[in-house]
């Protein structure tokens, strides 16, 4: 039997990895992958609680998170393609045209 805490520990670590990736990496595509990593960490938490509590609502929520993640990936990658066409770079430090 695996305690619930171990799933939550794993999830916390994965989420922190995602935050680290968003904060440190400068390649927009890798930043995007880190966001997916964070979404998955939360999904793991939701499913762990869902299974330990015997309530399927958590699994339904994961289902909707996946839909949002798919939509987000499609639109985000389209934005990256459009940005690359215009600026010839995917370095997030150079993409500062929205600066105040």
């Amino acid at each position: 039997m695996i305690p619930l805490n171990h799933y939550l520990l794993l999830s916390a670590f994965l989420f922190s990895c995602g935050v680290l990736g968003v904060a440190v990496r400068r390649n927009a595509i890798v930043v995007f992958m880190s966001i997916e990593l964070m979404l998955n960490a939360v999904n793991l938490t939701l499913i762990a609680f869902s299974s330990f509590l015997g309530d399927a609502t958590g699994q339904m929520l994961v289902f909707f998170v996946m839909v949002v993640a798919a939509a987000e990936a499609a639109v985000g990658l389209a934005i990256i393609i459009a940005l690359f066409r215009n600026k010839q770079t995917v370095n997030v430090d150079e993409l500062n045209i929205l600066k105040w």
Binding site: V67, V68, A70, A71, E72, A74, V75, L77, A78, I79, I81, A82
Partner: peptide
Amino acid sequence: LLLAAIVGAVLL
């Protein structure tokens, strides 16, 4: 949501 994402992705 998915429809909006499809339209947005194609447009962008």
